[in-house]
Design a protein around this nucleic acid. Structure first.
Lengths: 337, 337
DNA sequence: TCACCTCCTGCAAACGTTTGCAGCAGAACT
DNA sequence: AGTTCTGCTGCAAACGTTTGCAGGAGGTGA
């Protein structure tokens, strides 16, 4: 029984006599033999692994995306290696390079690198970019522009005329996109937009803007993501500002957490799981013909909960009176359920 | 210039003449050459990768552990591959096997497999087990027994005599440990323990137990983790039960979220980041002498916040009166800050 | 009987590195 | 001058697979 027969038993079973095959399998079972994927990869060039690089694994936006990608990959006998870039472009580049030869392709989620660097890297290893539009590469994006527009229209409809935007981190395409769309939408609604940022895209980043938001005089805020929106609400609470009575807050992402806090967060739902699946499909689809570039843009949707309320009464110009705020605000939102 | 010289330039630079080395590096730079880690691994047997398998990447307990492990590994030029077992023992086994030959070792976090299977797998690839004590293997555990004891003593000190325990998933060592310790501590405090479970270890699992908790008549509850505690609080709210006025709730883990909800969660802080670092150290320490078995047990700590309050008045045997609950409870906790 | 075909198996090269060994040049010692 | 040592480089085997090619056994049709 030659090694090549063993090899074929595992990689091309139809080429070997059923009887021989069984003997091989029995033997393998007994010896605990399993083909060495690294050695296989060396000659075939296919590792059956895909890399998945995210900016921050602690951001609850990513886990559903990761899980969806994982299960999609598993169906095709692929495994996913997740890595966390810590919101750092340099680490990101290092990770891509390290992963390059051990995977068949990489899913780059919310990259912080420059477009040109990404294009450069894409010549070393197949890349699918998530949450960023780049012309020459396969990409999966959420239609956050639509989401931001819906959010602004919702706020304008409630009577808000001065709206704040808590921007995300500097390198983020999504943040730019939201800003662009929110600016257009506010103008159309005859309202005014105040941009605050850039900020780190987590609850601390959100909380840190509370004072600035208050000073700016806006009556409603759209945040780059839910985590920042939640942080902001915390920060505002600490300043004795009520949400949504004094200021309305809208997030983006619809993470699980946004339903667990009070007031429950009004937010733009982004289909993270669908994005994970789409990205894997895109990467594995054109197995060999590299230079295919697909683009997917996924629908977003406004989920109205309890963190948004009517804007200021247009007839009264009274002091909002934060100091006097002692009403049992949270109870109000419990009562709503 | 021979390939072996190139090889040495990268893997043992001191063996090659500085001048030659520079020529090689210049050439490599120009050609965009990078050593193929898979091929290197084939012959050296070292991949400079480590695997990290978690039960559920969406559980906020894990990300800090993962991030700590990642940064610790990066310092030693290792990369971490994260995989999610979906709380499924079979997937877990499959992942270990798939990873086995592509990594130098695996960190098994909160495994759901049986001890015997884990021992079996540890003969194929170096394993460090986190959140489970197994005699023959290197392990990192949190001292949840101590944490559970502190929690029960805290509740007993507040006057609670009937305490509930929301158990975790079936295969979990931590859950057994908490149960054991809580039972001892309640007995010592002359109180009574009601165990509810097993349950899925997420917010839905917690919320699903709300009715059962209420029926059981306990006045305080210790949950297997924060996510379940938070879910339970939600579930109780929906039933018009106030926390902590009617029922006190304690979680375990101290995830970031536990500070963002109202009432802020009293919980047992487990040092997840330290565990991640310790596990990586343990795996990489005895690089070659396999059969070393270290055991680390990390201190836990009770963090008292707003979800626990005094037990029922021992003199009155009145109906707790859930229906009448309309007090501005959350405001009380805002005021505390 | 011969030619041909199908099914299966063995052979050997190849993938991209690492590494023990040997060899060579020059320096340093005796 | 002879010996030994040091510093560097080349050679070739090895890691564990895959795969094109060749060949043998047995069947089928002429």
């Amino acid at each position: 029984m030659h090694i090549s027969t063993v090899s074929r038993t595992f990689s091309a079973p139809h080429l070997v006599n059923p009887e021989t095959r069984n003997r091989v399998l029995a033997c393998a079972e007994q010896l605990g033999y399993r083909p060495n994927r690294a050695a296989r990869a060396l000659i075939t060039g296919r590792t059956y692994n895909v890399g998945l690089i995210v900016a921050d694994i602690a951001n609850p936006f990513f886990p559903p995306l990761i899980k969806a990608a994982e299960s999609q990959a598993r169906q095709r006998d692929y495994h996913i290696f997740v890595a966390d870039s810590n919101e750092d472009a340099a680490v990101e580049e290092d990770l891509v390079r390290a992963l390059a030869k051990q995977v068949d392709g990489i899913l780059l989620c919310s990259p912080r690198m420059s477009n040109s660097l990404i294009e450069l890297l894409s010549r070393e290893v197949p890349l699918v970019v998530v949450n960023r539009a780049i012309a020459g590469l396969p990409t999966v994006v959420m239609d956050v522009a639509q989401g931001a527009r819906l959010a602004v229209e919702h706020l304008a409809g409630l009577g808000h005329r001065s709206i704040g935007l808590i921007a995300g981190p500097r390198g983020s395409w999504t943040s730019k996109e939201i800003r662009r769309s929110a600016a257009t939408a506010t103008r159309a609604a005859d309202a005014e937009l105040t941009v605050i940022g850039p900020n780190p895209p987590n609850e601390h980043g959100g909380a840190a803007t509370a004072e600035q938001v208050l000073r700016s005089g806006v009556t409603a805020v759209l945040a780059y993501n839910d985590l920042m929106a939640i942080g902001l609400i915390e920060g505002l609470h600490a300043l004795r500002v009520r949400v949504p009575e004094d200021i309305s807050v809208v997030g983006i992402d619809d993470i699980a957490l946004s339903r667990l806090i009070h007031p429950k967060l009004t937010t733009v739902a982004t289909p993270a799981a669908a994005a994970g699946r789409a990205a894997v499909d895109m990467l594995l689809a054109h197995g060999d013909d590299r230079r295919t570039t697909a683009h997917a843009s996924l629908q977003t949707e406004l989920v109205i909960r309890d963190s948004t309320g009517p804007g200021p009464d247009p007839h009264s110009h009274a002091d909002p009176g934060y100091a006097a705020a002692a009403a049992p605000d949270a109870v109000a939102s419990y009562a709503k359920e």
